[in-house]
Design a protein around this nucleic acid. Structure first.
Lengths: 240, 240
DNA sequence: GAGTGTGAATAGTTTCACAGCG
DNA sequence: CGCTGTGAAACTATTCACACTC
């Protein structure tokens, strides 16, 4: 079924999404190993520390290139560098956090933020009473200054930690002044042009997913009895 | 076509993970619709509001049963009920939050927590100076009381918001006293028996994933032949 | 006519298993 | 030998397109 459609495998940029999502985990483990001066790791050991299977790990790394040594494993330092590079962490990204409530506060203080390639350019909040306060060494700016801040600092990533009702508006403003990646903590679906990437982090969704599995454990796993309605409807086609 | 081998003919609990992860989004949109007293929605409208394609939405809902009406759409109230039930939200879950730093503080105040089937049974922190403080109407308990609290309240979900160094230990203790679902905010891979579900929420991983895509935008995206970088989008849907 | 529900086609991901290098 | 790198197989998920119901 030809019509190969050039999957761009192997070529630059052809790293599968699922792999990209795991690279940061490997990177974290490798960084810890580097600090304890471990020179090399096997796929087996690295995979165990990252909580994945070794075959998956090797396949993931194979998308970056051939950086292991057969019979030995991977050089820790070198692999740290290669993964950082693949993720684009050799560049610098400036971030603006909008909304300095409890969550924004937590984010502003989050140490891992500054560590690798990310820099908080500014904190912004709609509440004028908060403007001028400092958190983690950073001033809080009024929302009106958002556009100026983004442009002056060449911010490329916006973090939205506002209430749900404000999120789309803030997002539109960020996008309008050139932000191309958004991390959304507000419980809303944001709509953006498809040149912009949005990732969402949503506590209540995570809890609900856990609830689903939790429920399944407590009720006999065999069937799904449902509450009051006979739901066995599963009309799986007519199966002839 | 290779031999199919004995596939999942049995169809057990049968809702795909990917679907489970989206149901909470649909539920949120539907809840909003219910509040604005909209009686029915089409898959098209609901999908748009949830940010997915309509075919995907219909397929997702079809795993719960046949709850739509052809030519009309879905009854909002009824669908809210069916999704809630499928997710196990008709049951009640008690949650303990361990670690009341900035993030734990934010979580404790998170309104969405109490809303649907979840109840924060207790807050726990290792710092004895914090014990006795109250946040959002809840006392902070010393870490030593963790086991007692979990058992007395029949906690089934543990939320870990401690520093990375403490996370595995806290997790082990939670698991030892019967917690079967864990939501981990600490930047570590937790290891648990496979009877326990862990979901992780990790800010720096999300940022790194965004960085990857960001990098790809700024460097000439050489690998993509057909799709240029049409930027008419720059001006769309914004103003404000 | 409008819009759901679903087989079939396609795309993406994980797992297997082993060839081959150090 | 041990361990990486990788085709091929198995599985999971998305998209298409249309029969069928209201």
């Amino acid at each position: 079924m030809p019509v190969p459609r050039a999957a761009a495998a192997g070529r630059r940029g052809g790293i599968p999404e699922a792999t990209v999502a795991r690279l940061p985990v490997y990177l974290r483990v490798l960084t810890a190993l580097a600090e304890s001066e471990t020179p090399t790791v096997s796929s087996e050991a690295l995979a165990a520390a990252a909580g994945v299977g070794s075959a998956k790990l090797r396949k993931d790394l194979s998308h970056l290139g051939s950086y292991g040594t057969r019979g030995v494993g991977y050089d820790v330092e070198y692999l740290v560098y290669q993964i950082s590079r693949a993720l684009g962490l050799t560049q610098h990204y400036r971030v603006v956090i909008v909304g300095v409530g409890n969550l924004g506060h937590a984010l502003a203080n989050y140490a891992g933020f500054g560590t690798r390639g990310f820099e908080i350019a500014a904190l912004v909040d709609a509440d004028p009473r908060r403007a001028g306060d400092r958190i983690g060494g950073l001033d809080i700016n009024p929302l009106d200054d958002l556009e100026r801040i983004v442009k002056e600092n060449e911010v490329s990533i916006g973090v939205i930690a506002t209430p749900a009702a404000a999120a789309q508006d803030v997002c539109d403003r960020l996008v309008a002044c050139g932000v191309t990646s958004v991390l959304n903590f507000a419980p809303t679906v944001l709509s953006v042009p498809d040149t912009v990437d949005v990732r969402k982090v949503d506590l209540s969704i995570e809890l609900q997913i856990l609830a689903f599995h939790e429920q399944r454990k407590s009720s006999g796993v065999s069937a799904e009895p449902g509450a009051a309605v006979p739901d066995a409807v599963r009309a799986t086609g007519v199966s002839a």
